[in-house]
Simulated scan of single mutants.
Amino acid sequence: MPPLPRLPLSAVFPPPPPPGVAGDPGVCVPGGAFQRVSAERAVVLGGPAAILLQVAHPLVAEGVAVHSDYASGPARRLLGTLQAALTIAFGDTEQAHAIARHVGAQHARVRGTTRRDAPGTPAGTPYRADDPDLALWVHATLVWTARRVAQRYAGLVLTPAERERHWQESKPFARLFAVPDRVLPGSVAEFDAYWERTVAALVVTDAARSVARDVLTQRTRPPLPGVAALARSVTADVLPPHLAHAYDLAPTPGRRVAAAALRGGLRTARPVLPRALAQWPHAEVARRRVRRAPSPDPSPGPAALP
């Protein structure tokens, strides 16, 4: 088997989108709770946990195993997902819709039937990436993981009212990825209930474990010793405990110490870090775009009355 591809370290810092249309707020509320959470660079630490939560749903795991190229380039896929999420959160309206169309075209090809039995999912069960319930689950993993990591690693604690706004402001993001209003939980309390119910029913299959091994393998060029072990420690800290154990990521004393040290360091540094370091540059591009006045309409106005 050929060696898995590596990425240069620069790929971990995706560039912001072009400035976009002046004055265009995009699809997410400018400066709202959803953008505040999404802007934190620390949220990227939850990327592996979000993927592992997604593939703990047997239908998602089957789609990834059969149709995805995680095995040939998992780091590239993770970073592609990150760039798409940042573009939708902070791009102008057309930029957000364009990336959603691109992702939707890729998802349209992901369909089939499961090849093996899993608890609650017999072989032959049909799946498709644009299934509203599966799309909701993927969206939910991104919302929950970002909120959890922002709190634990960046010290961004949301009040109950802010948690409500964070959920409501995530809905335009969800709609761009084929999640209709009829399946979206109406409130954050309903979202939390949906989350607990769904997490309790998840099953970590062999296909999911294969994805986990690929995602948690160190892929940078040059290699960075210790990064893979730290990623496993953070992922064990972020995941619900029973899923961490199912993925063989039990929070051992060493992992607890590593995650606690990183949490403490980041939370101590965050209040004094310049915004340019603490946040993705996409957020600053969005702030400048929204502040800029749109260009005057070149079309002639109505003729003046004599």
Rank of each mutant, 00 (worst) to 15 (best):
A96P: 00
D248G: 14
G20I: 00
R77M: 10
Q151D: 15
R41W: 03
L239A: 05
V138N: 00
R288Q: 13
R255S: 09
A236I: 06
L7D: 11
R163D: 14
P30T: 10
G265N: 10
V64A: 13
G120I: 05
D69I: 12
V103I: 12
A56I: 06
W144A: 09
G226F: 05
F13N: 10
G254F: 09
V55E: 08
P58Q: 12
I51Y: 12
P296M: 09
A229L: 12
P296V: 10
A56R: 02
A250E: 15
G47N: 03
G91K: 02
V21Y: 04
E284C: 06
A178W: 05
A49C: 10
T87H: 12
V183E: 08
R182F: 11
V27C: 01
G26Q: 00
A212V: 04
L262I: 09
A193N: 03
L184D: 05
R219D: 13
A258N: 01
L86I: 04
A105H: 15
V183P: 02
V110S: 07
A200Q: 13
A61F: 02
A39P: 00
A189W: 10
Q279T: 06
R287K: 13
L53Y: 03
V203H: 11
L216R: 07
P300C: 07
L266G: 06
P223D: 14
A244Q: 03
W167R: 02
